[in-house]
């Protein structure tokens, strides 16, 4: 009994020790934004991380209330969206194409709330579809890969074997072939389920197999699994002049800082910009339904050149890629979109 009493005493004193938490959670005048991440979680340093960065930047710039969920398993995605909807959140963002059916189900039940889905397409009037022209960015990094490769063999490690990732693969191959028609691309996919985004061990295995087959530049479009490819190229070390033997190309977020010298560039998908923009639209009360396309022309897609990789790509290569970028924007170069084939 004494033990119980002391517990009760402790528990009643503890809250008094701290300053009261900000009770601003129910300030109805502010726009409430809820974001539901993919299985990878917001620290995947890639796709989800970019979305997380975007909403956080928006939270700094606008007076919004922001809450996030990392569902952890696919069954918790829809309940999390419904929890936001029940509380009347003004904008609910789903990250990743796999959440499209869930967000549509919830959006139908709550027609007055706004929703946004990253990478997915929905026809509902209250759902904004944020999609990217990944094939165009992949084309540009494919060019850089082909200009860097000495063996004439490139690798591609995809996450889940789905049409969305085929878009990356085909664009990459077309870009590489534009530079060197004889180049060969070895494509491999981590898996066919959600787990494919979160399996760095398998990612590494695939990258090593490709290197053993002769590939010297590997494009990893596999979320968390792609980090395995980073480890694989690092294992092959650098030559006498301090240049890496094998290179990896990052995806979604700029990943050149992660293994400096080994990361040739990153196919940057500005999920952060897209998410930031949709929050801004909601705050400024613009209608947000419909398809929002992000490509080279509006800086939604790009390739990374910064202090970590500027010595890896020679200036003429950059000029060639920039020229191709302008031609894609003006329509002179047509990159095949694998999802519209």
């Amino acid at each position: 009994m004494k033990c119980m009493l002391s517990l009760i005493v402790v528990i009643s004193i503890l809250p008094a020790c701290r300053p009261a938490t900000s009770a601003s959670a129910d300030d109805k005048s502010k726009v409430h934004v809820g974001i539901v991440f993919d299985i990878g979680g917001k620290d995947d340093r890639s796709f989800n991380a970019a979305a997380w960065q975007g909403v956080n930047r928006a939270a700094k710039d606008f007076p919004i209330i922001l809450r996030d969920v990392e569902p952890g398993d696919p069954t918790s995605i829809e309940p999390a969206m419904r929890a936001f909807a029940e509380r009347g959140y003004d904008l609910i963002i789903g990250v990743g194409f796999a959440q499209t059916p869930q967000i549509e189900a919830v959006a139908k039940d709550y027609p007055k709330l706004n929703f946004a889905i990253v990478d997915g397409v929905s026809r509902l009037p209250n759902v904004a579809s944020l999609i990217f022209k990944e094939h165009e960015g992949s084309y540009l990094v494919g060019m850089i890969a082909a200009m860097t490769s000495r063996s004439g063999i490139l690798g591609f490690v995809g996450g889940m074997d789905v049409p969305l990732i085929h878009k990356f693969e085909l664009g990459y191959e077309e870009g590489a072939k534009a530079v060197n028609p004889k180049i060969r691309v070895i494509p491999n996919y981590v898996g066919v389920t959600d787990a494919a985004w979160n399996d760095p061990v398998k990612g590494k295995e695939l990258a090593r197999t490709q290197i053993e087959k002769g590939a010297d530049v590997i494009f990893a479009a596999a979320g968390n699994s792609g980090l395995g490819a980073f480890d694989a190229v690092e294992q092959y070390g650098k030559d006498g002049q301090g240049r890496a033997q094998r290179f990896v190309i990052g995806v979604d977020s700029n990943q050149t800082w992660m293994k400096p010298g080994f990361v040739l560039t990153s196919m940057v998908k500005r999920v952060d910009n897209a998410v930031y923009q949709i929050v801004k639209d909601r705050v400024e009360n613009r209608p947000i339904g419909g398809v929002h396309v992000y490509g080279l022309e509006n800086e939604g897609i790009g390739y990374a050149v910064d202090q970590y990789n500027k010595d890896l790509i020679p200036q003429p290569a950059i000029q060639a890629v920039e020229a191709a970028k302008q031609k894609i924007i003006t329509g002179q170069i047509k990159v095949t979109n694998a999802m519209e084939k």
Partner: peptide
Amino acid sequence: LVGGILVALIGDDPI
């Protein structure tokens, strides 16, 4: 009760 103490230690209000 024990959970409440943990919540308080993490820094949220248990009640």
